[in-house]
Each structure stands twice: as C-alpha cells, then as structure tokens.
Simulated scan of single mutants.
Amino acid sequence: MTQVVKVQGLQKRFGKFLALSDVTFTVEAGEVVGFIGPNGAGKSTTIRTLLGIIKRDAGSAEIFGKDVWKDSIEIHKRISYVPGDVTLWGNLTGGEIIDLFIKLHGAGDKEKRDYLIKRFELDPKKKAKGYSKGNRQKVGLIAALSVDSDLYIFDEPTSGLDPLMEHIFQEEVEKIKESGKSILLSSHILSEVERLADKVVIIRQGEIVETGTLDELRHLTRSTVTLETEGDVAKMATENGVHDFTQKDNQATFSADNQQMNDILLQATKLGVKKFEAVPPTLDDLFMRHYEG
C-alpha cells in the first residue's frame, strides 16, 4: 500500500515544554486511522504540524511524499480538514461560508453540498454569528465532505453534535472510506473510532504508546467471561489466565487472557458448562489500560 502520511520521530517544544517527544506512525492509502489520547497528549499539535501550521523541531513528516512544512500549499490542494472548534465569519450565512470553502478548495460538488445540508439539518440562510457550536461544526463538516480530497483530517469533528448527527457523520465517513480515501480521525468518542478505524494510534504525553489494527490490539487485552457450571465454579479461580474472579451462587465473572482461553474452556467443561459467555475487549478497555494511574 502507498503511504499517504508518514511521520517519523516527530518532536515539538513550546519553550521548556516538550509537547511531542517521539511520534511515529503512518496512514496508508484507503486506510482510516483512529488517533486517540486525552487532552494534552499531543493529538492537535501533531495534526497542526501535519497541516504546516506549526513547524516541527525534529523528525520528519510527509503527506503524499511531500514535506508538510515546505510543501504545505501543494498538500492542501488534496486534503480536507475539520478542527474541533470551527471558527466562522459571523456576518456570512452558513451557506455562503460553505460555498467559499468549496471554491477555495476548487473540487467541490454542489449536489453533494445540498444533500449534506439536508442530512445535517443545517439552516444555510442563517448568519454564522447566530449558530450554536454544533451548527458551526456542521458547516465545517459539510464543507469538508462536499469536496473530493485524497486525505481527510478530522480533529474531534463531532464536538458539540448530538448523537443523531454523530451517527450521520459516521455514515458519511464510511462512504468516504468505501471510495478508497484516507482518513486521520482524532476523537474522544472511542465507539466512533472503533466503528470507523482500520488502525488505532494511541498517544500519551507526546509519545505513541500503541499502534495496530483493532484485532491486533485486542490480543493485548483480556476478554470478560461469564461462566456458570454444574460443579463448583470456584475451582476456576486458580486456573492460569484467570484474573479478577468474582462469584455469585454458581456463576462466576472474570477476565481471561486470550492466549489461555482454550485451556480455560477445557477446564470449564470438566465442571459441566451451563453458560459460557466471552466478550472481547473494547477499545475503551485498551485505552484505559494505558491511562489508569
């Protein structure tokens, strides 16, 4: 696959504060990468560096094989970007602003614009100074989704949107994904990332602490098992790979190492299994593993 985004050893300081110490990841052609981490972890700093808004102190960052700082104008012709807090011209209407963004990009689709305005339930005739935060986000999203780009960068794009609008955004991103476009999605909504992303990059204190597909990352966390047996289920508490064992009557709940799951199930059958449910770990589980404590 062709690497659309390539970041290697990225570093950025603001005075004495080291915002990015060693950021390395890639976005392949046609891939959706979920970029997650709490406030202050370095997500927006990384994205602003990729956009050529701020200059890196060390490392390399390329989009379409071009340097993000030196070639930012050429790069911007092929990307769409939506920040977490869209700032608009107050005296222009939402429709006028969308049309301006589309014209500046140069590859807009007015039919798609009209479709998206209707889908996101935006009043395009209302002046931007009268918009709520959610409606300002809608203007940014509609403008970005109305143009044909090779890379879409979303930095907390659904901030301020209600759950219905979040769902519509996710559906529209899935359409972009199906058309083979690349997407870098930074989001606090882990279910959103889990639904859309092919790969997840977790950043903590300016460093990448985990990278991989969801399936790859799930091997690193434990499944939650609910087990009911005819025999004494308490015997399962000492099995290898069983953790956080709790019991009520003859039903137990525990977390289990995935690589030990076959042996755990084998031992459970010796007790006469009446119920066995194994829930794979979620992205939330993986995320919290890196931030607890």
Score class of each variant (00 low, 15 high):
residue 170 Q to H: 04
residue 289 R to P: 09
residue 90 G to C: 04
residue 292 E to D: 03
residue 201 V to N: 01
residue 144 A to C: 11
residue 280 P to W: 02
residue 270 K to M: 08
residue 97 I to L: 14
residue 158 T to E: 13
residue 51 L to K: 09
residue 10 L to W: 14
residue 286 L to T: 08
residue 111 E to D: 12
residue 1 M to V: 09
residue 176 I to A: 15
residue 96 E to K: 15
residue 260 Q to N: 12
residue 32 V to S: 12
residue 209 V to M: 03
residue 284 D to R: 09
residue 290 H to K: 10
residue 74 E to G: 12
residue 6 K to A: 09
residue 248 K to H: 12
residue 111 E to G: 07
residue 117 I to S: 10
residue 3 Q to F: 08
residue 140 G to W: 15
residue 167 H to P: 00
residue 57 D to C: 03
residue 68 V to R: 01
residue 93 T to P: 13
residue 265 L to W: 10
residue 222 R to L: 02
residue 190 L to S: 03
residue 118 K to E: 14
residue 264 I to Y: 06
residue 94 G to F: 00
residue 100 L to F: 15
residue 88 L to R: 14
residue 106 G to E: 11
residue 106 G to C: 09
residue 231 G to I: 09
residue 255 S to K: 12
residue 102 I to E: 06
residue 60 S to R: 09
residue 164 L to E: 15
residue 168 I to T: 11
residue 279 V to L: 11
residue 139 V to M: 11
residue 30 G to Q: 15
residue 46 T to Y: 07
residue 200 V to L: 07
residue 17 F to C: 02
residue 260 Q to T: 07
residue 19 A to S: 12
residue 145 L to F: 13
residue 244 D to C: 01
residue 21 S to C: 03
residue 224 T to N: 12
residue 149 S to H: 08
residue 16 K to Q: 11
residue 65 G to Y: 03
residue 145 L to Q: 12
residue 56 R to M: 08
residue 62 E to Y: 01
residue 190 L to E: 08
residue 162 D to R: 05
residue 12 K to I: 01
residue 64 F to H: 01
residue 255 S to D: 05
residue 215 D to C: 00
residue 196 L to N: 07
residue 267 Q to K: 15
residue 291 Y to P: 01
residue 199 K to F: 08
residue 96 E to Q: 15
residue 142 I to R: 01
residue 107 A to R: 13
residue 114 D to V: 08
residue 132 S to I: 08
residue 144 A to Y: 06
residue 57 D to T: 02
residue 236 M to W: 08
residue 241 G to R: 10
residue 234 A to D: 13
residue 181 K to E: 07
residue 9 G to T: 00
residue 167 H to L: 06
residue 224 T to Q: 14
residue 152 Y to E: 05
residue 238 T to K: 10
residue 283 L to N: 04
residue 98 I to T: 14
residue 209 V to I: 15
residue 178 E to I: 08
residue 174 E to Q: 13
residue 62 E to D: 02
residue 158 T to H: 11
residue 96 E to H: 14
residue 137 Q to R: 02
residue 260 Q to V: 01
residue 11 Q to H: 13
residue 255 S to H: 11
residue 134 G to Q: 11
residue 64 F to L: 02
residue 59 G to E: 00
residue 133 K to F: 04
residue 195 R to Y: 13
residue 22 D to F: 00
residue 102 I to V: 11
residue 293 G to N: 05
residue 23 V to T: 01
residue 57 D to S: 04
residue 96 E to R: 14
residue 199 K to A: 04
residue 263 D to E: 15
residue 175 K to R: 15
residue 285 D to R: 03
residue 215 D to I: 00
residue 202 I to R: 00
residue 47 I to C: 04
residue 19 A to Y: 09
residue 240 N to F: 00
residue 241 G to P: 14
residue 174 E to P: 04
residue 48 R to V: 01
